[in-house]
Design a protein around this nucleic acid. Structure first.
Lengths: 227, 227
DNA sequence: TCAAAAGTGTTGTCCTTACACCCATGT
DNA sequence: ACATGGGTGTAAGGACAACACTTTTGA
């Protein structure tokens, strides 16, 4: 049996959550969209394989990477029996831009406008979306998608896109600040508004410490965002 | 590469949460304790393989079974490169008693008094415990461990053991009943006390419907249970 | 001066905790 | 009758959604 890895790669462009797909350059299914993947080699464990594959495409290391699930339907890959271990990863889309490997003709797609993908990759993507929502409800994991400096309204846009909800800015900002994970900067971002919004940085130490405690980021607000 | 399955099997004896381990009857590591496992065959997918292996040992079908994670350290099995997909399952310990397959010399161990186990099984067990706590905090999954008829104090004992917390009986009973997942029976269980506690059954329909919504079973009570 | 977005204040509602108390019954 | 656990009542405190309001600044 072959053992493969597939990576579901999330990014956030400041407006919408996106997924990085590659156009397959080889048979079978050449020319169709697919997750970035590869086979596990004898000299690496699963996490190492996932990190290697992610680096091949994005050039990035030290990325948030978490195992999602193993997929093993008998004919998921019609040509050969393959078990795939899917990983999901969150990257800062701006860092990616500088490092991208152009061999793969990769492209970012908004989560709500994905093209058809090969094999069971659709299922993997759905599961990853679900897991991201789940995880982000209790752990400050969405910060992994943002650049080093960001504003609270930017963060709010991210949450709104992940949960498809419109959030109250007042309540949102208080909830985030109450976690004490953010360090206020002196400067403001002035593109989004006339007043400008203060930049914040993540307090890395507290972030690590509190990552696994149960914080409450569940957006309980009722209003659905229109797509 | 070989692809195996390992099953972390939880049961509840009315008092403590337990794990079902088998004594390995073959080399390597004959005679040592281990999770129940087996290899994935070409004609089955991963879930089917897990269900088959679970049935081999317990005789049970239609069991709560969920994929935990794939484990793939290079030398996790020293004799051959093997990827193992771990599943965790929750069974009614009483049903098990009637069906057990004695070929495997299996034994229930309290979670807090596990013997040494082979390979990376300890790691799998720890992850399964963690996941059970996580899942049970939001989803009514612990009902899977109980017989068809059970009392609220029995359920409370289970939660107390899972979270190592002493819970307030009044608040616990109200919280559980507020989910409206239980149907009160006419008869009482009279062993636990003189007054006796009413039996309840799970409302299967509502249970299925509400399983994936976020209920709140987190025990926020502060008092740690002494072990 | 006005519009637009950032951010603060305020209030009512709901949920939860802690704990007092009542209930049913076997010995 | 009384001890034992089952179960209900209740008051204080906290969290949160909703929304009114103030602030800042570019045009």
């Amino acid at each position: 049996m072959l053992v493969a890895i597939d990576c579901i790669i999330f990014g956030f462009d400041g407006n919408r959550l996106k997924l990085l797909l590659i156009k397959r350059g080889f048979e079978p299914q050449r020319g169709r969209w697919s997750l970035m993947g590869g086979f596990v080699t004898p000299d690496e464990n699963l996490n190492q394989a996932a990190a290697r594959i992610l680096k091949q495409l994005t050039g990035l290391t030290d990325i948030y990477l978490e195992q999602l699930s193993a997929f093993g339907e008998r004919f998921r890959d019609p040509s050969e029996r393959t078990i795939s271990v899917a990983y999901f990863s969150l990257i800062d889309i701006n860092q990616y831009k500088e490092q991208i490997n152009h061999e793969y003709s990769a492209e970012w797609f908004p989560l709500k406008q994905l093209p058809p993908v090969i094999f069971d990759h659709k299922e993997m993507i759905e599961m990853a979306k679900e897991k991201l929502r789940y995880k982000a409800a209790f752990h400050p994991v969405l910060f992994e998608l943002l650049p080093e400096k960001f504003t609270i309204p930017q963060l709010q846009t991210l949450y709104e896109d992940v949960y498809n909800k419109i959030l109250d800015k007042g309540n949102f900002s208080r909830k985030i600040l109450s976690t004490a994970l953010l360090i206020k900067q002196k400067d403001k971002e002035k593109n989004g508004s006339k007043k400008g919004a203060f930049y914040y940085k993540l307090d890395k130490r507290k972030y690590q410490m509190k990552f696994n405690s149960f914080l409450n980021f569940i957006p309980s607000q009722k209003i659905e965002k229109s797509t």
